[in-house]
Design a protein around this nucleic acid. Structure first.
Lengths: 341, 341
DNA sequence: CTGTTAGCGCATTCAA
DNA sequence: TTGAATGCGCTAACAG
């Protein structure tokens, strides 16, 4: 149906090899070049990447596995990833795991079958087992956002612990002592942030009542319910740390529905980077994740690995030392924190 | 590097054909089946989809081209699309056009090269020209959200005009006469919604001052600035129609920063379907788009076309009559509209 | 039920 | 610079 290199051959009288050379940027007589170009135009020829991939055994596509594609964080990262990959001549094949480890494993196998040249994974599983097949085939992988305990895996992430530490420190510096945390322990990023918060509280000798610790998942629902509960307490907190975007949404929603005002009645600080966070009134103080930078570094690292693989720098069964790139999240100004006491 | 069907042959002593038959669900002796399965396990064999695709000339993957992947609407739709496609044994290859028609055209050509079996497109271009190559190759396409003026293109969309009409009607029914519109005319969906609004206003003989018509693009910035301007007017509107998700965000942000309250000082009705819209206080009245249904129908329609193509129902240069599926957006309750007058 | 053969569309030797 | 031949990994006849 679609035109092939053969049709061009018949049209121009040139050989397959010559045409192939043209397609791959080789040198040929201007005259022949002309002929081929005309044939391509009139035949609407388009290279068949499947065939090309079969012989070159590289697809020029990168598999991207995300834990949840409907998530705003994910969408933004995907946008940047797409940008950088495209710049480098790669396409992205995106697979959504829907927060399901089983789906995630299927995704990985699927991409392997598609012969992607490499993978970028924002994992849902905590165990790196599902990446075994990838590692075995010497397909480079880089993790994003969430590291996994496997010394062979590169990762680009954010200094969750430190940034969370700084965030709560800001609250403390404003004089707050009744500080509540709404965060998650279901994913590593949440755990790290939680640790950072607790460390600061410990360093400052600030006690946290059980009722101030709202540990659940990174969901709107958790944020919403937790904030409602906090506001009902006899001794309300004067400040709250919000662990991620969804939690911010839920919490602000609950706060908006209450008679309390931010920051007069309650100071807030959140963790994420999304313009939407501006929606809250007043503008939220945020620990901002450098999403664009993360995407850029992930692509850079992955392509480096692919290159190393090709140049046989692949040491036996291999591996260079894996790299864990930790980028700094920075506190961005806002008006959601009031002085206390 | 990776194991091939040949390795299995060497290991089992069976022929390529038998193994291929196994892989494609054919019948063979339990004994041989066993052997093959063991070989697959020990060799970690995985089908090479490029090779398979080359001979079957179908990739079992669908190209999905979206105008902006970082958009929440898009993310949600992608999630549903992925779900339904997966159920049918297809994978999605997602390309982001970043609201750039040039990128969009490249995406389409790229996917063509990847030999996708069909495409689902949420277009940025208003002109269907960029889909010529797809049509020419008889690759089925279905448009989503935004129709294009080409009688050969199927589309799944929402009754923007009618839903917007109903939305503004609700405002009018609550007694509002000073109704402002913040919407977009840069995309067809915005235009349709605008038309619906204006039609109702005309039917009810409600005059709209120039200063009440905030027509721009579907961006947070447009929503934000427009709302600020509206609130500064000597004669403020009593109700505002917000054309999409981003506009809602921006407008609510501006309103939150002002001394005015919703719905006491200003009634709001918005257009979209995202849980995040709940963030506003009070809960917004919304014209809700049936995103899941849209995705389901798009997949259904596309696979139908693919099937028709294969069974040669493809009439000459062909085509069945194209289908334009218009799904109803429905008004969802909320508390953002107050009685007026 | 199994094996042999041919070829999908292309890149890549090696000669010419 | 160009052309003829070979094979990437797999499926699809067909013959056994």
């Amino acid at each position: 149906m679609a035109a092939t290199i053969r049709d061009i051959k018949n049209m121009t009288g040139l050989s397959l090899a010559t045409i192939s050379k043209y397609l791959n940027g080789g040198n040929l007589l201007p005259e022949n070049r002309e002929k081929i170009e005309e044939a391509i135009r009139t035949l609407h020829y388009e290279v068949n990447e499947m065939a090309r991939g079969l012989v070159t055994s590289q697809s020029k596509t990168i598999g991207v596995v995300v834990f949840d594609i409907s998530n705003v964080f994910t969408g933004t990262v995907l946008q940047y990833l797409g940008e950088y990959l495209r710049e480098e001549g790669y396409a992205a094949m995106i697979c959504d795991s829907q927060n399901d480890p089983v789906l995630e494993e299927q995704n990985v196998r699927f991409l392997l079958g598609k012969k992607v040249d490499g993978m970028i994974v924002m994992p849902v599983a905590q165990d790196p087992g599902f990446l075994e097949p990838v590692l075995r085939n010497h397909i480079p992988v880089v993790l994003m956002d969430r590291p996994l305990k496997d010394s062979r895996l590169d990762c680009v992430k954010v200094n969750n612990r430190e940034a969370a530490y700084d965030a709560v420190k800001l609250l403390a510096d404003y004089g707050h002592r009744r500080i509540a945390l709404i965060s998650a322990d279901t994913v590593i990023t949440g755990q790290e942030r939680l640790e950072g918060c607790l460390q600061l509280l410990k360093d400052r000798k600030i006690r946290v009542p059980r009722s101030y610790m709202k540990v659940g998942d990174h969901s709107i629902g958790h944020g919403y319910r937790s904030m409602q509960e906090l506001l009902k307490l006899k001794e309300r907190p004067t400040a709250v740390f919000l662990g991620n975007f969804e939690i911010i949404l839920g919490a602000v929603m609950a706060l908006n529905e209450s008679p309390y005002q931010c920051p007069e009645d309650l100071s807030l600080i959140g963790f994420d980077d999304l313009i939407i966070s501006n929606l809250s009134k007043p503008k939220l103080v945020l620990a901002v994740q450098p999403l664009r930078k993360m995407a850029e570094e992930a692509v850079r690292l992955l392509l480096k690995r692919i290159d190393q693989n090709r140049n046989g720098t692949d040491k036996e069964d291999g591996q260079y030392e894996h790299e864990i790139l930790v980028l700094p999240a920075k506190i961005a100004e806002g008006k959601s924190i009031a002085r206390c006491g």
